[in-house]
């Protein structure tokens, strides 16, 4: 398997050793084992939303079961329940035998603010984006580089963003002129036609979005589980056919992929 089959999880590590983890899909299980091996004592976990494919790995995240670890957890506000209460649902019967409050790590729960905030050397921004239920995208800027993460995003549902100024584009404030954009590109065009409103983008929409916000590099993210590696290669080829010739060509995200953003 060339692309991998885990659900969403990305690590962003800074030169100063800070560790940011974006989402807690099944990919976080392996990452947790690696962080434990590295002896990481502090993790900043940024959740875009609480759909299961972005949360289901948390219950198997090794640092959560280490009393010496601090987990600083961030997520979108909900009009109904607090972040902790919402996450706690997945740590309760019949879904899981261990209650969230019985996990040994020191976990703090934070609603993402509406304004930029800093953690160590990093400036973070979060913005609500078009996807069913409260969902945010993130931007992390540090050491002269920036990455934006919008794994579940259907900006086309809010109109023709290609014709809008960036202040009117969903997630525009976090993706604008970013060095690296990880963006939803789940569907081929013909698939998208049948899945309009499901909260995900077609490959052409992802490429157009990257262009509209001036992202310097696009990594296609949130692969459809029915797509084989060969189909994923076709998706990448299709993305490149839509993209301008100048700049880095779009790339599909692959499990274990490492991108160095050193300025």
């Amino acid at each position: 398997m060339r692309c991998g089959g885990n659900t969403s999880c990305v690590e962003v590590s800074l030169d100063d050793g800070s560790v940011f983890v974006l989402d807690a899909g099944t990919g976080i299980r392996e990452l947790g084992a690696e962080l434990a091996e590295r002896g990481t004592q502090k993790v900043h976990l940024l959740l875009t939303h609480l759909h299961l494919d972005h949360l289901e790995g948390l219950r198997f995240f090794a640092p959560l079961f280490d009393p010496g670890v601090e987990i600083d957890l961030w997520g979108p506000r909900s009009p109904v329940l607090g972040l902790k209460e919402r996450i706690r649902k997945s740590f309760s019967p019949p879904l899981f035998p261990i209650d969230l409050q019985d996990t040994p790590a020191k976990v703090t729960f934070n609603d993402v603010p509406n304004v930029p905030w800093t953690i160590g050397a990093a400036e973070l921004r979060a913005s609500l984006v078009v996807h069913p239920g409260p969902t945010v995208g993130y931007r992390i800027s540090a050491d002269g580089s920036s990455v934006a993460y919008l794994p579940d995003h259907e900006p086309a549902l809010a109109g023709r963003f290609e014709e809008r100024t960036r202040d009117w584009i969903s997630g525009g404030s976090i993706a604008e002129e970013v060095d690296l954009l990880l963006h939803d590109a789940q569907y081929f065009e013909e698939e998208y036609d049948e899945r309009l409103g499901w909260g995900h983008s077609s490959v052409s929409s992802a490429v157009a979005y990257a262009d509209a916000v001036g992202a310097k590099r696009l990594v296609l993210f949130h692969h459809d589980p029915t797509h084989s590696d060969d189909r994923m290669q076709e998706l990448e080829d299709e993305a490149r056919s839509f993209a301008d010739d100048d700049g880095d060509p779009p790339t599909i995200a692959r499990e274990g992929m490492v991108l160095d953003l050193s300025a």
Partner: peptide, 19 residues
């Protein structure tokens, strides 16, 4: 005129109103 990012509620309301 303001070029501050619009809240998602505004972006969705605009699309709603546009239709």
């Amino acid at each position: 005129p303001s070029d501050r990012p619009k809240h998602l509620v505004h972006i969705l309301a605009r699309e709603f109103a546009s239709n």
